[in-house]
Design a protein around this nucleic acid. Structure first.
Lengths: 282, 282
DNA sequence: AAGCATTTTTAAACATAATTAAACCGTTTT
DNA sequence: AAAACGGTTTAATTATGTTTAAAAATGCTT
């Protein structure tokens, strides 16, 4: 018995299968489970979600999102906060929370997400220490393999179970508060490494003095990082401009990109661009 | 006999649809088994199915699809969600790390607290990787200065803000899951170090074969740690006895203390003590 | 092939769950 | 103090689920 199949004008012979075409409307409203999945995914990537974000994204009412958050909280999958939800228990504060850090959190996340676009497949990158570049680690979910070198234990922990990411933790004495290493051990490892992009967080950007950080040992490590990297990208929210830290890291000619937020002064941007730096406003 | 494909022509023209092609014969309605196969195939490809989709496709009533989904759920082939089915439990995706931590948590904490008594003022110690020795880091609140060397990022993060503790994080490639480094970078740092006590967690203690761990790179690192330490203390809950991991760490003559819980077999304790090891039961 | 029992399917009725707008209340910000 | 924001409740609407009884399909026996 010979069986013919016709499909878009072509004829298939003796196909052992039966055929159906299943259609899914992409514009269909999301099911409750899909919403919950999405919320959990966002939480995992960003650390917290806001109701505003979610209503914009999913096109449902705030009441519904609040109900979702309540359900997920009941399942111990998130902690409810005013206006959203968080993956961390806000009540297990290891150290007093810097209020300002929280206020700039959204900017830092936008900056981090803008930085993602600079990373290519099979790249190797360095992620420095500091809260801004930590957000980069959090937002990093590469499709292809990526090697990440970092002095920061927080970055290592964030990335250690992530798909497609290989982490090289630098060694050395750990600085209090930053949980990040510095010193000769780390620098010696860097001497054997050549890396694509360095993502650096800084404490100060002064148009006359250059890029600075408050800790001297870290400044030295950052210099070594610059030496072994081909491209230097500085991530800094707009509050860092006009400030000076104790230790100088580098001059403007060594920096290829600065990624910052939209509160940066236009004159500053112009001055940076005249120095040959590509400024990305997230 | 000619068989033709069933097209939903009007739908095809509309663009916001994604289409999936499955095979089936048109003339006969689908059998129950074919339906189930179709549902499972869709699930495999897309992760979830909706009842709406399936009724449109197979031209059966919603009641029937619900019955199908119930049957498949009873066979543990899918999870029912409102309006459809999902391939994996949508709510068990979080917090994989805590689970291992929870195993024998109370024992591990008692073991860790017993280990504290071995640490003296101004000592320098190594804390290895694994959940048991991590509990030691958690319990560590020294009155006098203490230097801690560790390959584990979790230990570093736990101790980085603690009073009187200086942390030396070893460098190297980070192992998935353990978030702990191993390899030549770490070993080279250890060559320059001499340390008082090494607190090691192991995966297996076999009276004939010695101390073992499942990961080979970690086994090698552990050997180097032993070389640079004066005293070796093994922390292991009683479930570790009689087991063997892939990589051998050391023999019994190199171990000075074993700290374990009270569920250990008395014969085992005796055998260990005959080998010259001091056994502490927490 | 006819008869009969069993299973499958479905429409209809009913029950439950989900969503939202609107009204209202309490906090936080200005 | 006012305005803006987030949260809760209510009531109406819509979507999804369950049950029931009847019809249709299937399988088995003779």
């Amino acid at each position: 018995m010979e069986v013919f199949f016709r499909f878009f004008g072509a004829v298939l012979v003796k196909n052992p299968y039966k055929s159906f075409i299943l259609f899914t409307n992409v514009n269909d409203p999301m099911s409750i489970t899909e919403r919950h999945q999405l919320i959990l995914k966002e939480l995992k990537e960003r650390g917290h979600v806001s109701i505003q974000e979610l209503t914009d994204l999913i096109k449902v009412s705030g009441v519904t999102i609040r109900k979702d958050l309540k359900l997920l909280e009941d399942k111990n999958l998130l902690f409810r906060t005013r206006g959203g939800g968080s993956i961390n228990n806000p009540y297990t504060n290891e150290r007093p929370i810097n209020e300002k850090e929280l206020i700039n959190a959204a900017e830092k996340q936008r900056i981090a997400r803008a930085a993602l676009s600079l990373i290519g497949d099979n790249d190797s990158i360095i992620i420095g220490s500091g809260t801004t570049v930590f957000e980069l680690a959090r937002a990093l979910h590469p499709d292809k393999h990526l090697t990440v070198i970092t002095p920061a234990a927080k970055v290592t922990l964030e990335l250690s179970n992530r798909q497609n990411v290989e982490v090289l933790q630098l060694g050395g004495i750990v600085r209090q508060n930053s949980s990040s290493v510095a010193g000769s051990y780390a620098e010696r490892i860097l001497e054997e490494i050549s890396c694509g992009i360095l993502f650096l967080g800084v404490d100060g950007i002064d148009l006359d003095f250059g890029f600075t950080i408050t800790n001297l040992a870290e400044a030295s490590l950052n210099q070594k990082m610059i030496e072994c990297s081909q491209v230097l990208v500085v991530l800094a929210d707009s509050t860092k401009f006009g400030r000076r830290g104790l230790g100088k890291i580098c001059n403007f000619d060594q920096v290829e990109y600065i990624i910052t937020d939209d509160k940066v002064h236009p004159g500053t941007v112009k001055a940076l661009e005249e120095k040959g730096i590509k400024v990305i406003i997230a």
